[in-house]
Design a protein around this nucleic acid. Structure first.
Length: 855
DNA sequence: GCACGCCTCCAGGAG
DNA sequence: GTCTCCTGGAGGCGTGCC
């Protein structure tokens, strides 16, 4: 209930945000004819009362505006008849009410055509979301009333953000989509040709590069590591750095006292000293208005917010400030603002698009992982730096942000454009929303395209029911995947087989989608999903099954193989690799959102049907493998580890799987050897090329102290060089010396506090830990006691010490109070995980008894 | 009073 | 604010022993 209320409030905020745009008077050119442009953004302009489209002209590097001229208006649907509504004064007398229309829609839950009434209004707030509640609150039942107007406009106009368009005689038309393109045959299947063709054009179309500038500001804060409050904006902005893709690289500095600049430029970056802060801000606004794309890192909540509020404080007229603040956003009237913090924060982007290369979502951590260089470290207040030091520091941040979008041929821009096209979201939205927002919008677009009524979440739940299986873990909603018990030990020549995109394949081949599972037809009830009481419709194809299945096929049969096809040019291959990665992000989340309560198409039976089929598929495959004489050592969800198989047996198995289970089974990789401890989700393997893969083990976890990580990686280095059983014996000796060395350095307190620190993230603010007080929270509390601010997302570094509390944060700890025995315990668990798999005892390696006599 | 076992919470990972 | 499964470590509580 609370969550529902919060959602309501949020929806209100966002709708109000659309209105706020009315305050600004900024306009870009609105030509009657343009060349080929890219659709970056769709929003609602309250002042004009129309949908506003921002087009990017790559030739000129600038933005054009195009306002809707088709007369499209906001609306919602209801099941009340026109006659009933016509006599309802609350509705027809509502401010902004326009007219009523009878419309026919296909209701996917009922599988029948229904007649609905469309209530059309003159501004989005009349439907809902404003302070007055809107018409949707007055109706007994409303459909599609929570779809944001700009998204509704995209659906109805069939617009695809990120695709090329042009304005021709005042009309917005698609341009250069490659209409004569041939769709690859493996994908067509029973799908409608038109659908496949459009999607293929959309994926195939290369993405533009976009002229852009990154900005970063510094504020004269009176205290070190105390971030100034952007709502107050009480301290002066002392520098603004701009790093751009078109050669404008400069730092604006606020003049203090009599001090003059020593240099006019530093490494090609122009330095400009400005007499007063108003001028500095005005110069910054010029940049904001000039560039089609402005990049920041946390600009929504800091840089742009501060700039806006500071300008207001200094007396700028509201309408002259080119920054529009929302509850959690800072948008631009002309160009588009992308806050990279928000984009990199997206878990799917982090894990699937960037392979988990960065772990903390900070500019330092991301840039180091992706670019190989990072922020400049300073140990005093920014206001105490010389002009040159300040400029260097500030510019570095802007440059990092820019480079994050330029590296690998503007990979990031291309990914964003692909995500826009797939999700049908404007650039501002796609970079700020999570994966569920993307998939929601993608599916709603496809509903509207087919004239499907978008169902209300409560109707899906009541007509489809809840989950029938029980999760293994307490508190989870339904049962998930199978993880096999590994057979502990080291094995040579292991082949890993995996089902390509298992869950998306299941969605496709089992026809899983919210509307077709537990469908209303009697004759479908016998088409049961094994392991569940649910049945699936045999009369029609589900929407999710169709769309996700098609995207899966595009990736598996076209973009992924083509991205590795050496006969294609490097440029084409790298484009296909971008597409393939974007599809992977969508595919990997497509099943998860069905099991997510806040997803508007939440459907527990569909989610659990996917995992049930997954369990069925891996179990049957393992049985068949055994029957063929293959030895399965381990498996997890969609993979099986087979010991030294004959190629023809693998082929036989794959053929059987395809025929019998209707999924693809492929060789994923081959290990020279793999070592399994007793534990699930833990192993260490050396691939044929000598590269090492470590899964799950504590030695590679982020929060593990550095000294253990180092010792662990030395151990890995030794194991990587092992080629045969005999070499293990020599390896053992080397391992022994590592462990002993570690042990004696611990005992002798030779490590620094840094080496020994556990670095654990506060997942919430310290006061929200009510059930227990974990160690990192205890350390955080001690930091708070000495006046340091600690909040959710901070990484707390602490060491374990002797005494009642047991931990101290790094700044308060001394090396002599460290609890050495605790650390030896950690040394033990870290190494035992690996050694156990190799049949070596930890105590045996250490020679514990003898060694201890030395101390 | 205090070991001890048992359960829960939390962070971080695999897939 | 996709999902479930799995692990290590600590916190917290009840029980039985001295």
């Amino acid at each position: 209930m609370d969550a529902f209320k919060e959602d309501l409030e949020e929806a209100e905020e966002e709708a109000v945000e659309e209105e706020v745009i009315a305050e600004t008077v900024f306009e870009a050119e609105k030509p009657e004819n343009t060349g080929t442009c890219y659709l970056l953004s769709v929003s609602y302009n309250g002042r004009v009362g129309k949908a506003l489209i921002k087009l990017y002209d790559p030739e000129k590097g600038k933005i054009y505006f195009w306002y809707d001229n088709t007369g499209h208006k906001p609306y919602c649907l209801t099941n009340a008849s026109i006659d009933e509504l016509r006599v309802n004064p609350a509705i027809i007398g509502y401010e902004g009410y326009d007219h009523l229309e009878a419309v026919k829609k296909y209701d996917p839950l009922k599988d029948e055509e229904v007649t609905m009434t469309k209530i059309v209004v003159n501004n989005p707030l009349a439907i809902g979301g404003g302070p007055k509640g809107g018409i949707r609150e007055l109706l007994p039942a409303a459909w599609e009333a929570r779809v944001k107007y700009h998204n509704c406009y995209i659906y109805d106009a069939g617009l695809i953000p990120g695709m090329p368009y042009r304005v021709k005689d005042g009309k917005l038309v698609p341009e250069g989509w490659g209409l004569n393109i041939d769709t690859p045959s493996p994908i067509k299947g029973e799908l409608q040709d038109e659908l496949v063709k459009e999607w293929f054009m959309v994926l195939q179309q290369p993405a533009p590069d976009i002229r852009r500038a990154a900005i970063d500001i510094e504020v004269a804060s009176p205290a070190i590591d105390r971030v100034p409050n952007p709502s107050e904006a009480e301290y002066p902005i002392i520098s603004v750095a701009i790093a751009s893709s078109d050669g404008l690289n400069k730092v604006l500095l606020l003049k203090r006292g009599e001090e003059e600049l020593k240099e006019k430029a530093l490494n090609g970056v122009r330095l400009e000293l400005l007499e007063d802060e108003r001028k500095l801000i005005e110069e910054t606004f010029k940049v904001l208005n000039d560039y089609p794309l402005i990049l920041t890192f946390n600009g929504d909540n800091f840089d742009l917010r501060y700039l806006r509020n500071r300008a207001q404080k200094l007396g700028f007229p509201k309408a002259s400030i080119p920054i529009v603040l929302g509850k959690d956003t800072a948008l631009l009237p002309i160009g588009v603002h992308v806050d990279l913090y928000k984009f990199f924060h997206n878990k799917s982007v982090q894990v699937y698009a960037f392979g988990g290369k960065y772990r903390e979502v900070t500019l330092d951590s991301i840039s180091e992982a992706l670019l190989g260089y990072k922020k400049i470290a300073i140990d005093k207040l920014v206001s105490e730096l010389t002009y040159e030091e300040l400029a260097t520091y500030c510019y570095r941040d802007a440059k990092l942000v820019l480079d994050l979008t330029t590296f690998q041929n503007s990979l990031l821009i291309k990914l964003i454009v692909m995500f826009m096209r797939i999700s049908k979201l404007p650039m501002e939205d796609v970079t700020r929303q999570g994966i569920s927002g993307w998939i929601k919008n993608l599916l709603q677009f496809e509903h509207r395209r087919r004239n499907y009524l978008i169902p209300r979440p409560e109707d899906i739940l009541t007509s489809k029911g809840g989950a029938a299986t029980k999760a293994l873990i307490k508190g989870k909603k339904y049962m998930g995947a199978i993880v096999l018990e590994p057979k502990p030990g080291a094995y040579f020549n292991i082949t890993v087989l995996d089902f390509t995109s298992l869950y998306p394949s299941i969605l496709k081949t089992r026809n899983l989608s919210y509307e077709v599972i537990n469908c209303p037809h009697k004759e479908c009830r016998s088409n049961i999903i094994a392991g569940t009481p649910h049945w699936v419709c045999v009369k029609r194809r589900g929407l999710t099954s169709t769309i996700i299945g098609m995207l899966r096929d595009f990736r598996a049969y076209w973009f992924k193989p083509k991205s590795k096809d050496k006969s294609l040019s490097q440029e084409v291959r790298s484009w296909y690799s971008v597409v393939e990665r974007s599809l992977k992000v969508i595919l990997n989340a497509s099943y998860g959102v069905m099991g997510h309560e806040n997803f508007p198409l939440y459907c527990p039976p569909a989610a659990e049907a996917v995992t049930a089929v997954g369990r069925y598929i891996i179990s049957r495959t393992i049985d068949k493998a055994k029957e063929l004489g293959l030895e399965v050592i381990y498996g997890d969800t969609d993979s099986i580890f087979v010991l030294n198989p004959r190629e023809e047996d693998v082929e036989k198995l794959a053929a059987w799987v395809e025929e019998e289970l209707r999924v693809d089974l492929d060789v994923d990789k081959k290990y020279r050897y793999v070592a399994f401890p007793k534990l699930k989700k833990n192993y260490l393997g050396v691939l044929e090329d000598g590269s090492v893969e470590i899964k799950g083990m504590v030695g590679k976890k982020r929060n593990t102290p550095e000294f253990l990580k180092i010792a662990f990686s030395e151990l890995i280095g030794i194991l990587a060089s092992v080629h045969s059983q005999d070499e293990f014996v020599q390896a053992k000796e080397k391992i022994r010396s590592i462990v002993r060395d570690c042990y004696s350095r611990l005992k002798g307190r030779k490590y620094t506090l840094d080496d020994l620190a556990f670095k654990v993230m506060l997942s919430k603010s310290p006061k929200h830990y009510v059930k227990t007080t974990p160690q990192h929270v205890k350390a955080a509390q001690q930091l708070a006691n000495i006046g340091k601010r600690v909040e959710a997302g901070d990484i707390i570094a602490f060491v374990k010490v002797k005494g009642p509390i047991g931990v101290k944060p790094l700044p308060l700890a001394r090396i002599d109070e460290v609890d050495v025995d605790k650390y030896i315990g950690h040394l033990r668990t870290t190494f035992e995980q690996v050694l156990e798999a190799l049949g070596i005892g930890f105590d045996e390696v250490l020679g514990l008894k003898r060694l201890e006599s030395f101390f």
